[in-house]
Design a protein around this nucleic acid. Structure first.
Length: 425
RNA sequence: GGCGGGAUUCCCGAGCGGCCAAAGGGGGAAGACUGUAAAUCUUCUGUCUCCGACUUCGAUGGUUCGAAUCCAUCUCCCGCCA
């Protein structure tokens, strides 16, 4: 199976400038291709991961990814797929985001010399003059065409600033520069990038005289047609461990819809196509498949050791899906002894807080981050969702004192999946 | 620059002098059922020292016994015209 077929089978292909030409290109030479990321935040989240995974596969097949972080375009804001303009970031914010994203991306692709190229489009935009740019590039763009572009059309009603309107021209220029200076021949991106990407291939053809291609990757939705990558609390699942703990990251994948597991394994695990099909086929152990998915996805983002810990912690708490290891898999999760100690997320609080008066339970729920306010904590208790050391508490006025701790620790639980080990300091 | 429309709780969106902490939907949380799934059903979803009090409806200042609702000024958004 060649790389193009693999991308295709794994579901990475949505629209392209020509499937046959792209397959031909990818199978006949080492291709430099680029994917752009806008530094609109200081961390990527799961929703950004699809193009990253495509990059990985292509790199493994011997092609060279050019990872473009948009230090310039990030200052403009891409209107594609947005209902309204984003807040404009300061140049300093953009610059620090660029660094943060670079670091995260380096987990997913090999950064060894010559295997990948990192660029920042600020390098070629920062010194360009407006007049020169208009004369050189503006000439090739038809406003009529631009207005017909979906991302522009949909914003015409709600308003679109000239700033944002220019975005696709800048992105197109990126492609032109990368083609001219580095010999970049392809661009990959999210489905919503289609218009911008095509603008790029046309610019390269008309101005540079070179034939280049682009391909979009489908937009990933969760079971309810929502944008993929939100969970518990509607928050994004971040790649940054400080924002989303490894345990929560693992849990996000572990809790995937049955119906999505195959697709997710194709996208986010390195397991071969045939194995994924077997794991998720008729009568397969779907929960084991989810464990493998969670383990593999966590390994990619946080490393094997962290993934192993998360696997053991989650399995220890909720049970392992395949304790006898009957399911055949090439995943290294198969080698893990399923009996290690349970590690739950911990919160440390000073002992004094639980002496004499003690601490009201709603307060404690807030202190350890389970509830966002004491009112919220009360409702949780009233709803029958709170447990201390597996004993259900329905008294809103429950006071937690040293007596409730066993060996300096206590396990507070809200709902089925939300645990917090409270440790006295 | 002129004319018109709008800003409501996480989001969308009702409300248009007291019955409003504010309908409805979405999202989220908990419970039941389950497989740490989906679907379904029930409850909850401003804050607090929580059977009572306090603070919210773009901002500020008025009118009124009483305003998210009326008036004035301001800020921001949108449309049409220039």
């Amino acid at each position: 199976m060649n790389i193009f077929q693999e991308l295709n089978e794994r579901g990475f292909c949505y629209q392209s400038t020509g499937a046959e030409a792209i397959e031909q290109l990818l199978t006949s030479e080492q291709v430099k291709f680029y994917v752009g990321f806008d530094p609109t935040g200081s961390s990527l989240h799961v929703g950004h991961l699809l193009p990253v995974m495509a990059m990985r596969l292509l790199q493994k097949a011997g092609h060279i990814p050019i990872v473009l972080v948009g230090g310039a375009t990030g200052q403009i804001g891409d209107p594609s797929g947005k209902k309204s303009a984003r807040p404009i970031l300061t140049k300093e914010e953009v610059a620090s985001n660029v660094e943060a994203l670079k670091k995260q991306l380096a987990h997913f692709i090999s950064v060894e010399d010559g295997k990948a190229i990192f660029v920042n489009n600020l390098d070629w935009f920062k010194d360009i003059g407006y007049i020169d740019f208009l004369r050189e590039i503006g000439y090739f763009f038809s406003v009529n065409r631009m207005l017909a572009q979906e991302s522009v059309k949909s914003r015409l009603e709600d308003g679109l600033s000239f700033l944002e309107f220019n975005y696709s021209i800048l992105q197109a220029y990126d492609f032109y520069v990368l083609n001219r200076d580095l010999g970049c021949k392809m661009e990959f991106g999210g489905q919503d990038q289609w218009g911008n990407m095509v603008a790029g291939t046309e610019l390269v053809r008309r101005k540079g005289g070179n034939e280049v291609h682009c391909m979009t990757i489908p937009l990933l939705l969760d079971g309810n047609g929502q944008k993929f990558g939100k969970t518990a609390g509607g928050n994004n699942v971040w790649l940054d461990v400080n924002r989303t703990s490894t345990f929560d990251y693992y849990q996000f994948w572990r809790n995937s819809d049955d119906a999505a597991v195959r697709k997710l394994l194709f996208y986010f695990s390195p397991l071969p196509v045939a194995e994924v099909e077997a794991l998720t086929g008729e009568g397969a152990n779907i929960n084991r498949a989810k464990e493998i998915l969670a383990y593999e996805a966590t390994t990619l983002a946080h490393g094997e050791a962290a993934a192993r810990e998360a696997f053991l912690a989650a399995g220890g708490k909720f049970g392992f899906a395949d304790p006898e290891k009957k399911v055949a898999t090439t995943s290294t999760v198969a080698g893990i002894e399923q009996n290690a100690a349970i590690e739950l997320p911990e919160s440390e609080l000073p002992q004094t807080a639980f002496e004499s008066e003690g601490m009201a339970l709603p307060r404690l729920l807030v202190e350890c981050g389970i509830s966002k306010s004491t009112s919220d904590g009360r409702r949780l208790i009233q709803g029958g969702g709170v447990t201390i050391n597996d004993v259900k508490i329905d008294d809103v006025n429950k006071i937690v004192t040293v007596a409730d701790f066993d060996g300096g620790a206590l396990v507070l639980r809200a709902g089925k999946k939300n645990f917090r080990r409270i440790v006295i300091k």
